[in-house]
Every structure is written in structure tokens, then in C-alpha cells.
Amino acid sequence: MDYFIELLFSGLTRGSIYALIALGYTMVYGIIGLINFAHGEIYMIGAFTAFIVATVLSIYGFPLLAIVIIAGIAAVVWASSYGYTIEKIAYKPLRHAPRLSPLISAIGMSIFLQNYILLAQTSDFLRFPRLIPDFAFMEPIAHIIGSTDLVILVTTVVVMVALTFIIKFTLIGKAMRATSQDRTMAMLVGINVNWVISATFIIGSGLAAIGGLLIASHIGQINFYIGFLAGIKAFTAAVLGGIGSIPGAVLGSLILGLTESFATGYVSSDYEDVFAFSLLVLILIFKPSGLLGKATNQKV
């Protein structure tokens, strides 16, 4: 039984890691129907920003809490400005182009950003400082769930609740929903659609940056390639849960994480990905729009 609980929490941690990235994919898709492949790179840039700021601050001897907060804010601001800029440069000019064009543009952006960080920073794996300390009260159950895991789990839940709240009850949320339903109509009733799309990218990128800080601190290393690998899995999770749906992204991520964890624990880690993607195929056969996705008619 202990083993089951340990695997359960391993899976939840992994799932939350995916969820923090998957939320950004799903938000952007929900609004403009674009799969933003550069999102993984935003996450990576967030992690790098946090790394640089945290390293500098620790040289000046700031307390750990201050480092986490300042590095977090810096990462969010920096990554959001990347998200905003990418949208303006790579996607906005293609808004009326065929659907394939912005997709290719997104892949191009992803490759560009990876190589930019590779050249501007380094190709080595860097040691990411442990920003989240081991809490004393966690010590008795540290073998089941670590302090970082706990912070990641809690953050994911908080972020999901906050996002759902924003989208359901705030003015910008209403504008987002309107834009996602019908962009032209939203414009006609006086919604600044460009601004709504920018806001979506800013929020999504900010989330990715928070994810970057937490996840890098969990695995203790970063390099220019982490965004790509994590991005692919997070994207899978978002599709699994129903891309465009925020609870769906979290649900899909948790299911993916748990599947991988239990597959590793009870079968073999060699087949971790086989199980994860078989599950994806199965779910998409029976529910093509994902678990919580809405089946919509293709507007062509």
C-alpha cells in the first residue's frame, strides 16, 4: 500500500509539472485556435531568467524567500514580455492566413528561441539552485512527497482555481470567452480583440515562467533543451484533457503523470512513453475532442 501511495504522489508531482506548462497551451488554443509550440521555450526562458536572477541575488546574500519572490517576479515579467512579443512578431501578421501558416511559424519560433538561448547562454547543463528548502514538517513523509513536490502541487491547484475564476467572473475573462466564441462579433460589440489576445499570451507565459522556476528547482538543472521535451508532454496532456479547456489541461496532465508513474512502478519504465501515448490514442478514439473538450463544428 505504501508503494501505491508513493507512486501516486510521484504521478501527481509529474502531472502537476505537466499541468503548469499545459495551461498555457490550452489558453492560447482556446482563444485563437493556435498551438503555440514556442510555449515550451517560454517556460525554458522563464527558468533561465529565474536562474540568473537567483544566482545574482544569492551572491549579494539575500534571504531565500526574497530570492524566490524576486526571481519569480523577474521570470514572470521577462517571460511574459517574450510571450507578448512572439505573438506580435510571429502570429499576429498571420492571423488571417491559412491555419497551417501560424503553426509553422510557431515551430520556427520554438527552434529560433532554443538556438538563441544556446548561443546567448550556454549549451551545458547548469545547476539550478534549490530555491525551495526542505520544510521541517515534511520530514516524516519526505520519502513519499518532498517539499518541492508539495509546492508544485499546491501551486498548480491555486493557479487552476485562479484562472478559472478570471475566465468565469472578470471582465477580461468575459472578453476572452467572447473572443474565443467569435472574434468578429466580439470586435463588433467593442472588445479590443488584439488586446485580449495579447493578454492571453501574457498570462500563459507568466504561468510558464512560474512553472519554469518551480520545475527547474525540482529537477535541479536546466539547459536550452528542457522546454522542448517538457513542451511535447504538456501538449500531449492538454490534448488528452481537451485542448482549450482549463480544467481539462490539469486533468489531462494528472492522468498522464499518473499513467507514467504507475506504468513505471508496476510494469517497466522502459515502456513509460508507450503507456502514456497508448492512453492518448485510446482516449482520442472514444472522445476525439479530449476528456473535457467541447465538440465544436469546424469553422472553415
Binding site: E6, L7, S10, R14, L229, E260, G265
Partner: peptide
């Protein structure tokens, strides 16, 4: 005797398995 997937964000499941 097992293989892991390089680049995965978390290896806690395999570590639990080692313990088990």
C-alpha cells in the same frame, strides 16, 4: 533492470521502484 527516458522532468517513480 530498467531503462529510463532521458530528459524526463522527474524520476521519482523509478526511484520509488528501486526502493520497493
Amino acid at each position: 533492470f530498467e531503462g529510463i527516458t532521458p530528459g524526463a522532468p522527474d524520476y521519482s517513480a523509478i526511484v520509488q521502484k528501486i526502493k520497493e
